[in-house]
């Protein structure tokens, strides 16, 4: 369940005592992100509206969306990894039916500077667009 995963992440972040620990956790998440396939590191799969470069590549298999994602900046990569925990390997319907206020649910604006949250919004929009596209293809 998407909402359950978000709750778990929120709990983990809330338990961290200060900004150093929170960024430390996000950076660690980024380092743990699966290798991005080089053949998809192209303009087509770049997410617009981020200050650093972000790539997001979707594949639909048996009704589930599998994302590859990456960023050239480590903190953004950590946020990408966080999004992957929430939205990777879900069906288009699951993604589209989930609330789109992830940043608020995770209190990211309190935990991180607002600029980070803006980049996150661009990535989320792209994830939802892919989900929408796949839901239409199926129909």
């Amino acid at each position: 369940m998407i909402s359950q995963t978000i709750e778990e992440i929120a709990k983990t972040l809330d338990a961290l005592p200060d900004w150093e620990e929170r960024y430390g956790a996000i950076i660690a998440m980024g380092k743990g992100l699966a290798q991005y396939p080089e053949e998809h590191r192209t303009e087509q799969f770049k997410v617009k509206g981020c200050q650093s470069q972000v790539w997001l590549h979707p594949t639909l298999r048996n009704g589930t969306i599998y994302f590859d994602a990456d960023s050239d900046a480590l903190i953004v990569k950590g946020l990408v990894a966080l999004l992957m925990k929430v939205y990777n390997e879900r069906t288009p319907a699951e993604i589209l039916n989930s609330k789109d206020d992830l940043a608020q649910q995770l209190s990211l604006e309190q935990h991180l500077s607002p600029n980070r949250a803006n980049g996150l919004a661009s990535m989320m929009k792209q994830i939802r667009l892919y989900a929408l596209a796949y839901s239409l293809v199926k129909a």
Binding site: Y23, S52, I75, S113
Partner: peptide, 21 residues
């Protein structure tokens, strides 16, 4: 090995305003 953007974010958290980009 370190993206300027990451440095800017963490320095900002420590109260230091610099420009990255």
């Amino acid at each position: 090995g370190i993206h300027a953007h990451d440095l800017g974010v963490l320095m900002d958290e420590q109260g230091v305003a610099v420009r990255t980009g």
